[in-house]
């Protein structure tokens, strides 16, 4: 049985933990609002880029002149994975779920005899993945989220690296893993193929039906030239989008994790206080019994 002094100090320490977690929750909530706005503002660009590329890809089709970023290298031996995680922990299952998905993919690819290369964005992912796939990590980025949120230049740095690797023929397929922001309490691990470009054909058809946009487009300059210009840019845009989604998800996950922690701490304080009061009462009763029985003995 813990002594009264022990209980008192435990209550004090849980109280200070609660203070910290509730402060973190507040911070996460205010950051969440900003990054959620940023993520939602960036969606139209990525979506329109996607539809436009889908249309162009359909126009160029499987012709010989199609850029490699669209048609692929013709092999799929080497896979590059770009894994987006947070720089910091204490955000519930956020990092763990991404890492778990990435690990499962790595295992599946390795079982098929493919080579895997990894680019880690965010410190936590790199730390978790280096344990069993340390030699596969070829680049890591951290501290992407500055004071003013995420800048496009951070995404370009990653995109430039990916494109450089592709130009050097160091991978055939590139996939990105990130948490897509749904709401403050829900984030979905998303796997998206970046290279070769995987168009959302269905979406494109829907739009074509709805707006009669299936008309034949004129291209200026040629389809191939536009594609050659657009595809590398799309890589940057998709990476930027993933960064924003991931950041909004991180803050959302942290907010709900800290909310839970704060509530747990509150419950624990209640339980400890009851225990403290009971043992204090027991001690008083004990003392009384001693005094009374002492008096009776006289």
């Amino acid at each position: 049985m813990a002594s009264l002094k022990d209980l008192r100090s435990r209550i004090a320490s849980v109280k200070s933990t609660r203070k910290i977690t509730s402060a973190m929750k507040m911070v996460a909530a205010s950051k969440l609002r900003r990054s959620q706005d940023a993520a939602e503002a960036a969606r139209p660009y990525a979506e329109r880029m996607g539809t436009m590329l889908g249309r162009l890809a359909a126009a160029v089709g499987g012709s010989q002149g199609a850029p490699k970023l669209l048609s692929g290298t013709g092999r799929e031996d080497t896979h590059l994975m770009v894994v987006f995680t947070a720089d910091r922990g204490l955000c519930g299952g956020f990092n763990a779920s991404i890492v778990k998905a990435a690990r499962a993919k790595i295992r599946a690819l390795k079982a098929d005899g493919k080579t895997v290369k990894i680019i880690c964005v965010g410190r936590k992912g790199a730390d978790a993945l280096k344990r069993d796939n340390g030699d596969a990590i070829i680049a890591r980025y951290s501290g992407i989220e500055g004071k003013k949120g995420i800048d496009f230049s951070e995404a370009s740095a990653v995109a430039d690296k990916v494109l450089e690797l592709f130009d050097n023929g160091e991978f055939d397929v590139c996939t990105i893993f990130y948490n897509k922001f749904v709401s403050a309490i829900s984030q979905v691990v998303t796997e998206q193929q970046l290279v070769p470009f995987a168009g959302e054909a269905q979406e494109d058809n829907q739009e074509a039906d709805g707006k009669g946009a299936s008309a034949i487009y004129e291209y200026e300059p040629s389809e191939e030239a536009i594609l050659a210009d657009l595809l590398p840019r799309n890589v940057g845009v998709q990476i930027f989008g993933a960064m924003l989604e991931s950041s909004a998800s991180e803050h959302g996950a942290r907010m709900s994790a800290m909310d839970n922690a704060t509530r747990n701490a509150g419950d624990m304080i209640d339980r400890l206080s009851i225990q403290y009061n009971r043992s204090r009462q027991a001690q008083i009763t004990n003392e009384l019994i001693e005094i009374i029985s002492g008096a009776e003995a006289l």
Binding site: A215, Y217, E218, Y219, E220, P221, I226, D229
Partner: peptide, 19 residues
């Protein structure tokens, strides 16, 4: 300002994609 020269877009313009 298109890559191959400026172009004006009026309502009911023919479909076009340009850098």
């Amino acid at each position: 300002p298109g890559t191959e020269g400026n172009f004006g877009v009026l309502p009911k313009h023919a479909p076009l994609i340009s850098t």
